[in-house]
Structures are given as structure tokens and as C-alpha cells.
Design a protein around this nucleic acid. Structure first.
Lengths: 204, 204
DNA sequence: AAATTTACCGACCACTTGGTTTGTGCTTTT
DNA sequence: AAAAGCACAAACCAAGTGGTCGGTAAATTT
């Protein structure tokens, strides 16, 4: 176990800078050499730890991306409060950190979904699985909200979840250009307006 | 002018198959040779008509993409009817054609925005300009709707336009995997629900 | 008919790609 | 101290990459 420490450390270093570069330049547009130059390592080191560039990327998804999605988008919406508040606050926060963080890792998924679509089914499956996890959690959160009287009982929870994910993916695409702050502000405002229309009027 | 006909025809052929391949595989992941093989043409032909791969892509944006956006997303929402209906119908139709058309060209913008972001400012400018045109038209359509009593006067037209674009971009990303039809259906339903909440209650 | 231009061919170039292989210093085990 | 394995270096490879360039058949212009 002791001896594995160095191995793990190097692999982790490779993964984090790999993710940063893949996120910045895209997977196909980032060469293994680019990553190694940044790390001061050689080809030998890379192919000692990972069997291919693709394998390397999948390990990044499993070790870094999934966890980030959990901590940023799933854990914050667990609980028994009004899910409409939890979700809108969670998304607002995610967009805020995305704004200030150069390599926010925030929604990498958006970039990668576009890049691998139709080109790499295996990686697409991983990416879609991560999205699915988020979706499932959104749906169950909304359903619980119905049960607890926060959400109007006529609301189509699956539809709302899809709509939330869609708009979030989209706004993350738009936010990359200039006025991210203004855009985030308007986006969150509209999201809350949309949520308000589906709140249970009895309680709210 | 006569002599230009052949030139124009060849260039157009190059542009359409170029767009199809760029859309399918991405810009950086499609080589000039790939396009030429599909066309049965040679390198000489390509660099006779276009001065670079990038120049070629920009010509595609100017000649094909801009027009498609106009005909699919802008012209359909012009008119004096209820903009909320016009817009939701227009988007539904755009998603429908996207569904049935392998190379729908529907929202290529989404893919390319992701691919060129941070990598090619010049092309990004073109892409953002196209988006901006759509946004401006959405805003003015909504404002006219306010004036004509279709849209509640408290509505933030810029915010709504951003939100529409965001969700559209996002749903186009999601639609590439499996169940596009179901997703489109739920998406449009939510969009209409969202629109209903901002309709002017006096008239609607 | 001669001269010139158009539209294209295909070999070639320098360079980059993901990946392999051989070798080597260091640490751990025996 | 010898043997074995670990973590990496560095040279190397075939297959591409965008782009150049000399050539050429056919069409236009003179």
C-alpha cells in the first residue's frame, strides 16, 4: 500500500491537469504530449499508468467529474425543504462558482457531450450516465416536494427535470462569452419565475 | 459571370459536404482530406478555392448557417400574432425537423460554440453574432407582444429571450442520445407552461 | 491560331498524432 | 549484497495533419 502512494499521486496529478486541458481545448484537440509537457513528464510515464488516451479520459470521468457533479448538483438538493428553492439556489451557486473559476469543472459535461456525440459511444455512455444520475435525483426531489405540499400536484416532474437540465446546459454554453454575470442573473431570475408558476398555491 | 458558375457550383458542393462532416465529426476532427475524399476532389482544388481550412469554415457559416437560422428561427416568429405562440410553435417545429433529419443543420451552433470556445476568437465572433441576431429578434418579438397585449407587462423580455435560447441549446444537446421524441415532447410542454405564466391574463 | 486564364491534379513538405520499445536509476524484497 | 520490480526517460514509429507547388487539360480571350 505504501508503494502505491507515489503511483496514486502521479496518476492524480495527470488526471487533474489532463482534465483542465481537455476542458480548455477539447479532448481531440489536446495531445498527450501537451499534458506531459505541462507536467514535465514523458510518454513512458503516461503509458505506464494508462493504457490509452481514451482509458485515461474515462478514469478522469470516474474519479473527478462524477464526484464534482455529486457535490455541486446532487448533494445540495437533498433534504426536506422546498425543492424548488433548493434547486434554484443550487444552480445559482453552481453558476457563480463557474463564473469565478477559470477551470470551474462546473459543467464540463456540456462540452464533452458535444465533442463525443456520434464519435465515441463508450465515452458517451459514461457521460449520459452522469447526466442520468442528476436527472433521477432532480425528479425524486420534485416528487418529494409534491408529497410535502411544496409543488403543485399537476406538475410533470420528469418534464421539469429535463427542462432544468436543458436550460442549465444551454446557459453554460452561453456563459463562456463576455457578460457571464448579467446572463446568470437573468437566467436565475427566469428559473425562479418558472418555478413560482408550479408552486403549490395552498402553502406558498 | 458565366464562367463563375462552375466555380460557384464547386464551392457550394464543398461547403455543403464540409458542413455535414464538420457537424458530424467536429471541425478539428475532420481533415481537409476527409472532405475531399467524399467529394472526389484533390487538395489542389480545395486550396484553389479557399485560402485555408478556417477561411473555408467561415464561408460555410456565412453562406449556409446564417441562412438556416434565419429561415428556421427568425422568419417564423415575425408577424403580429401572439409571440408566445409563434415562438413555441417555431421551436417545436425546429426540434421536429432536427429529429428526423440526420444532418439537420438545426443547431449546429451549439456544437461549434463548444468546439471553438477559447480556441478561435474569430470564429467565435461569427457564432456569437448569429446567436445575437436570434436574441435580438426574440426580444423585439416579445416586446411587440407586450405592446399588443399578449404578454404581461412585467415580463423581462431580455431575460426570457436568454432563457429560451439557453433551454433550446441545452435540449438540442440532450436530444442527440436515444429518446429524442419523448424529450422534445416534454420540453415543448414545459416551454408552453413557462410561457403561459407570462401571458397577459386580461386577454388570454 | 496563339496567349492566357480557369479549375483542378497529385506529389511533396514539415510537423504532429497516439502509441511502442528499450533502457535506467531507485527502491524494495530476498 | 543480489535480485526483482517500480516509475519513469527518451528515442522511435507509422499514420496522419494543413498547406505548398509545379504541372496540365480545357475553356476564354485576344
Amino acid at each position: 500500500m505504501e508503494k502505491n502512494l507515489k503511483r496514486m499521486a502521479t496518476m492524480h496529478r495527470m488526471q487533474t491537469t489532463g482534465l483542465a486541458l481537455f476542458y480548455k481545448n477539447g479532448f481531440y484537440n489536446t495531445s498527450v504530449d501537451d499534458i506531459l509537457k505541462e507536467l514535465g513528464l514523458s510518454k513512458g510515464a503516461f503509458y505506464y499508468h494508462f493504457k490509452s488516451k481514451e482509458d485515461f479520459f474515462i478514469s478522469i470521468l470516474e474519479n473527478l467529474v462524477v464526484r464534482k457533479v455529486y457535490s455541486m448538483l446532487i448533494e445540495p438538493i437533498e433534504g426536506h425543504d422546498n425543492p424548488l428553492d433548493l434547486i434554484s439556489n443550487c444552480i445559482e451557486e453552481a453558476l457563480q462558482t463557474a463564473e469565478h473559476n477559470e477551470n470551474d469543472y462546473g459543467f464540463i459535461l456540456n462540452n464533452f457531450l458535444n465533442e463525443f456525440n456520434g464519435r465515441n459511444p463508450q465515452i458517451m455512455k459514461y457521460l449520459n450516465d452522469i447526466l442520468k444520475i442528476w436527472e433521477v435525483n432532480l425528479v425524486s426531489s420534485l416528487q418529494k416536494g409534491k408529497f410535502n405540499g411544496y409543488v403543485d400536484r399537476h406538475v410533470d416532474c420528469e418534464g421539469v427535470a429535463s427542462y432544468i437540465i436543458s436550460s442549465f446546459l444551454g446557459v453554460r454554453t452561453l456563459m463562456v462569452e463576455g457578460s457571464a454575470t448579467a446572463l446568470r442573473y437573468r437566467y436565475v431570475q427566469q428559473l425562479r419565475f418558472y418555478f413560482k408558476a408550479m408552486a403549490n398555491k395552498q402553502i406558498a
